[in-house]
Design a protein around this nucleic acid. Structure first.
Length: 563
RNA sequence: UGGCCCAUGGUGUAAUGGUAACACACCGGUUUUUGGUGCCGUUAUUCUAGGUUCGAGUCCUAGUGGGCCAACCA
């Protein structure tokens, strides 16, 4: 009955405080506001998890709002991908919104601000404006156009909207304070002229509102209670409130509630990058095949790699929420997917680097069907049939002519258990002219069959190997991935480009032999290749040519026994 | 020659003035027909210096270190 009290993160505490101070629970409303200029990545999952998590916790609506105010970079493809990824993660938004839906309202409010002397049209070049803006340590100076009359401002702004000027001729700026220690308060730009086709509004507009003017007011229009974003927006909060308070003054009867912005630190993952611009460069430079390349830290990439929604959600939950800069060890992500797949993925046998084994005392031409447990962590997973015969493949690394006691695998004169099958003993091996082992001759103990219940079958031998029957094995392509970067934080070096840290061996494609039960597997299916790791069927797979991705390896406490 | 934010094991996150906890990683043990899983265990001057307090990781001050802010990007 007594449920353990989980501690609240600082954002949940803010919500609880607001509730305690009298905010009705029904007023709680959140939003996730991606810009459709790229695919979502694992870093976004934190923001998604926070806002959608709050929605779930308080049974409050969460809007999905596309912050589409810059038609230069935004595309419908990204809108579609973002929706697909959020749905795949298992979250449901209340309403699908677009900042561009509010362009008219924003424009009307801007007119009102001009009328009240709160905004003016500036006609300097961007370079002049930059100089005049000052620096973080020096105050800015007023624009020579700052004191234009309301009438002139109105005429110019309306002219901007009507397409009477060229791009760059004029901008609309809020009139705040050019000497503010907060650079964002130094008369920020509200509108710029842009003759670009917008993926939603087409060519209806040739002026587009800037982020600060748009974002907060979109929150306000949607009556969002808590607008949660990452730390770099902290300095924007002052401006967020400035715009919000003016607009509230104009529209409080229609929109009675005011949103508040709060900031948390974004998620960084070791050995990768988390910037849409840089991820795009990996694609453009051909380092990866696309946004959904299994090596990418994108949601689409992780999905294709074989990650489950539950593992990703569990990951961001474990990572927590704070205001500290952080780099999460990618090992935690890997732990989360292993944790999930260990419970859910069926075990199968696949030999990735084969060497032939002949069981000399097994009758030629004989075959038999053995029973194999699908998942010892899940009794309901049942059993499958695995064919056995005289000639098998095992992993090359599982045999040595001689080795010390720490080598629990097959060596000359010693026994090993073949998983779900018999105990075999290595008698001899043959090599090619280069000394490479080409075949291992073994004998088997016919009474030792797994599950047969004989005393021989109960014998304990130290090693157990996976294998496939050569005659029955299915050939498959297996793609093995490694981290994309060799440096723990590739984009944290001021003096070096992140591309310098690329891992040139992040993809290895091999030909493997898998047990015949996998012939019927379909795209997305996940398995544990016993003793090897977790693998899933790639989008490129066909019944004629199976293609697997390595999602993550099994934890390996042996380390290969090198030296 | 400014403003704002942050500082707890290797990495993250708790402890909400009262015994520094949890997860991952690491190392060791145990179980095991996966060197997987499970189970058990080892590992900490809470950045520094002052101050407030019976009592400070927590509050105050200063310092140190890190981050953000000078796009007609979001």
């Amino acid at each position: 009955m007594s449920e353990e009290k989980k501690s609240l993160n600082f954002i949940e505490q803010i919500v609880e405080e607001d509730l305690a101070n009298g905010m009705p629970k029904a007023q709680l409303k959140f939003r996730f506001p991606p810009e459709p200029n790229g695919y979502l990545h694992i870093g976004h999952t934190k923001a998604i998890g926070i806002s959608f998590g709050l929605g779930l916790k308080y049974n409050a609506p969460v809007n999905l709002r596309f912050d589409d105010t810059n038609p230069e970079k935004e595309e419908q493809e990204f809108v579609d991908a973002i929706k697909r990824d959020i749905q795949w993660l298992g979250y449901q938004w209340a309403e699908e919104c677009y900042s561009s839906d509010y362009f008219q309202q924003l424009y009307d409010w801007a007119i009102r601000m001009i009328q009240e002397g709160k905004a003016y049209v500036d006609s300097q070049t961007s370079e002049d404006m930059r100089v005049q803006k000052g620096t973080p340590t020096e105050p800015g100076t007023n624009s020579p156009y700052r004191d234009r009359s309301v009438e002139e401002n109105l005429e110019l702004f309306i002219g901007m909207k009507e397409g009477k000027f060229k791009e760059g001729d004029h901008v609309l700026r809020a009139k705040i304070d050019m000497t503010s220690p907060n650079m964002l308060m130094r008369d920020p730009i509200m509108y710029r002229i842009m003759y670009k086709h917008h993926h939603r509004t087409g060519d209806e507009w040739c002026i587009y509102p800037m982020y600060d003017w748009t974002h907060g007011e979109s929150d306000y229009i949607e009556q969002i209670s808590h607008s949660l974003c990452s730390l770099e927006f902290k300095p924007h909060r002052e401006l967020y409130n400035w715009f919000r308070d003016h607009v509230f003054d104009y529209s409080k009867s229609e929109y009675p509630l005011i949103p508040k912005q709060r900031e948390f630190s974004r998620l960084n993952l070791s050995y990768t990058i988390m910037s849409k611009r840089k991820l795009m460069r990996l694609i453009e430079d051909g380092v990866v095949a696309g946004w959904d390349d299994p090596r990418m830290p994108t949601i689409s990439g992780l999905r294709r790699r074989g990650y489950t929604p539950a593992s990703i959600r569990g990951f961001v939950e474990t990572v927590g929420v704070s205001k500290r800069e952080n780099v999460i060890d990618v090992a935690l992500l890997e732990f989360k997917i292993r944790e999930d797949l260990n419970k859910t993925a069926n075990r199968v046998m696949a030999v990735l680097d084969p060497v032939k084994v002949v069981i000399t005392n097994y009758p030629e031409g004989q075959e038999e069907i053995l029973q194999a447990e699908n998942n010892q962590e899940d009794e309901s997973a049942g059993f499958r049939e695995v064919p056995f015969s005289r000639e098998l493949y095992i992993e090359k690394e599982d045999f040595r002519e001689e080795a010390n006691k720490k080598f629990f695998r097959l060596k000359l004169g010693k026994e090993v258990r073949l998983k779900n099958a018999y105990i075999i003993k290595a008698e001899s091996c043959t090599k090619d002219e280069n000394g490479n082992i080409t075949e291992i001759q073994c004998t088997y103990d016919p009474l030792s069959r797994s599950g047969s219940g004989t005393p021989e079958s109960m014998r304990r031998v130290k090693g157990t190997l996976h294998w496939v029957s050569i005659k029955h094995a299915v050939e498959a392509e297996v793609r093995i991935y490694d981290r994309l970067f060799l440096d723990e934080a590739p984009d944290s070096h001021k003096d070096k480009d992140f591309m310098e840290f690329l891992n040139s061996n992040s993809l290895e494609t091999i030909n493997a032999y898998v047990e015949p039960s996998l012939q019927s597997a379909t795209i997305g299916d996940r398995f544990q290749f016993q003793r090897k790791g977790y693998f899933n069927i790639d989008d490129d797979s066909t019944p004629e040519k199976l293609v697997f991705n390595k999602t993550v390896g099994l934890r390996d406490s042996w380390g290969g026994g090198k030296k």
